[in-house]
Amino acid sequence: MRRKIPILCLLLLILFPVTSFAEDTKESQVITENEQRAGFTVQAVLPENQINDRISYYHLLVAPNHKQTVEVRIMNSSAEKSTYKVEVINAATNRNGLITYDEREKKPDESMQLPITKIAKPKSKEVTVDAFSEGKAEIDISVPSEAFNGIVLGGIRISLKSEDDKDDEKGMSVKNTYGYAIGMILTEKEDTPVYGETELKLTKLQPEIDYGSKVLEASIQNPNPEAMQKLVAEGKIVRKGQEKALAKNKLENVKIAPNSIFPFQIDWGMQEVTAGDYTFIGKVTGKNNKWSFKQDFTITREMARKMNKQTAFRIFVPNWWTTSFYLAGIITAAVTAWLVVRLIKRKKGREMHEE
């Protein structure tokens, strides 16, 4: 009998092989690259109208019709003459709850009346610096005549120009290059707070594929000219009329840029998305305020089919799985019955022998 137990275990392992799945790890984007690898560093030259001179980014007090030029030092620590791209980019909020200055192609939110790209522009889009030398990038600031409230936030991005950028001009693919971003805050009142907790709105729900994963994206809008920080965002997907969470997500220490959309995502995971009516239930909690959201949405058969087909991570159940399951059950039951019969016979045999 002892010899037959390992054989049974081996049979079950053959019928039910152990399968491992690799998880997709989404790394958050890093704006500032390692100095040694980049071969250069940058430094903001803070002007006289800098509100706080203890910080390393621009926080400028401006006025209607105000004009000025600010400088960014570029220190080339490499042994080669290098050319750097200079850009001004509106602040945005990514799906990880971070304020970024690298989404240059992203259209400003409809609540943003004055993007920083309309106020600040590079004097030259490229700057060349000799090896082991220092150069500068200049940003021209021209404030419109109409006054604005709150803050305008963006970033000055300095990145190393490479051969890939030439390919980009020809319509070819582009690889990431090393770069730095220096934040720029503009305000017309010195006591205007940078951070606040005035209002958040849920403007849209969109089931979609993002980086190969099936997600529900909830567009949470900050419609005011103030940034937000130290927020906790959480949400779940349930069948309409039910409470059990089919998928959920929670992010802590969330920051949201002024007048921007925070694309809060809930990953469906490995499960198949099925057509039907669902409800998104979410909330964002700050230090002083809390916002709750609840909205129904529908996934059509076509949407479900498309999401399940396009996902990078799919579970395929072989056709032989069900047959193997029943076969293993029959074998297990038969072996168990045989063992029981053997034990009963042995017990009766011992009793007769003792008599």
Rank of each mutant, 00 (worst) to 15 (best):
K136C: 08
K345A: 14
E80Y: 10
Q242V: 09
V317D: 11
N222F: 05
R95P: 01
I256Y: 03
S56Q: 11
A181C: 11
N253D: 15
V174W: 00
L153C: 03
S28E: 12
R239M: 08
I151Y: 00
A137E: 05
S324V: 06
R305K: 13
S324N: 15
V152T: 05
T19K: 14
E105W: 09
P318C: 03
I151M: 01
F325I: 13
A92F: 08
A227F: 03
K347C: 09
W338A: 15
V232A: 13
K204N: 14
K201C: 02
N308V: 04
P144F: 01
R37Q: 14
V143L: 00
K136Q: 08
S142K: 10
E243F: 06
K230T: 15
I139Y: 02
V129Y: 04
A227C: 06
K136E: 08
I141K: 05
L202V: 03
S324G: 12
T187M: 09
A333E: 00
I331Q: 10
H66A: 05
T83N: 07
E71S: 12
D296G: 07
M352S: 09
N94C: 01
K244C: 08
F21E: 12
L60Q: 01
D164S: 13
K347M: 12
S56D: 11
K287R: 10
K26I: 15
K306Y: 02
F316G: 05
V284A: 02
W268N: 10
Y195P: 03
R37W: 08
Y178K: 11
S260M: 03
K248M: 09
S159A: 06
I74W: 01
V42I: 15
E354Y: 14
G282T: 05
V341G: 15
R239W: 00
T32I: 13
V284Y: 05
I31T: 15
I261M: 06
V317N: 13
Y195C: 07
V88C: 04
P318V: 01
R37I: 15
I185W: 00
D277A: 07
Q221S: 11
E110H: 06
A257P: 06
Y101F: 15
R301V: 06
Q242C: 02
E138C: 03
D191K: 00
Y84S: 05
S124I: 08
E138H: 00
